[in-house]
């Protein structure tokens, strides 16, 4: 028979292993990050998987943290916007978002960036802007920074590919 969990879970968040005592089984990953761990870079825009502002990487895959029960992710590795830069060195996606003005108010931006990082690692878009637009469509930007976002993803992807080539050489 199954067991009632102790409500204690382990997560690796931005490289840091954490033992987390959940106060309530209802806690979503998003509310765990924001309200318990005070990692507020991840944003709540709709809380229903409809806007993408809460996008984080779970075991390397981009997902909506608002529709993930924290308890269910026991053992997972989470990357949030706070874990992307290397100290003061921005991740190429972050730098490209600035260079291409891929945001205005900035509220959807952490989700856009995490989604872009996920998109690039999925490797399904190639350098086709239409595929990037389609695969970034889970992240709503009400300010309408889409053109800059698409350009930023293209450039960051190129940048990352070059880095990988350099590293491999």
């Amino acid at each position: 028979m199954g067991y009632h969990m102790s409500l204690s879970i382990r997560l690796t968040i931005n490289g840091l292993k954490r033992e987390i005592a959940l106060d309530d089984p209802r806690v979503t990953l998003l509310d765990l990050l924001r309200e318990r761990l005070h990692l507020t870079g991840t944003k709540k825009g709709c809380d229903r998987g409809q806007c993408g502002a809460c996008t984080v990487l779970v075991d390397g895959r981009r997902i909506n943290s608002c529709l993930s029960l924290a308890a269910s992710l026991d053992g997972a590795e989470i990357t949030t916007i706070e874990g992307l830069a290397d100290g003061e060195d921005l991740h190429p996606v972050q730098a490209a978002f600035i260079a291409h003005d891929g945001f205005q108010c900035g509220y959807c931006t952490p989700g856009q960036i995490m989604s872009a990082v996920g998109l690039i690692s999925e490797g399904n878009a190639g350098d086709d802007p239409e595929r990037i637009r389609e695969l970034m469509s889970g992240n709503i930007c009400r300010c309408g920074a889409y053109q800059g976002i698409t350009e930023a993803v293209l450039e960051a992807q190129k940048d990352l590919a070059e880095r990988n080539r350099r590293d491999a050489a």
Partner: peptide, 9 residues
Amino acid sequence: GASAQLRNA
């Protein structure tokens, strides 16, 4: 269907 994030989950 849905979005890349939702399809991933």
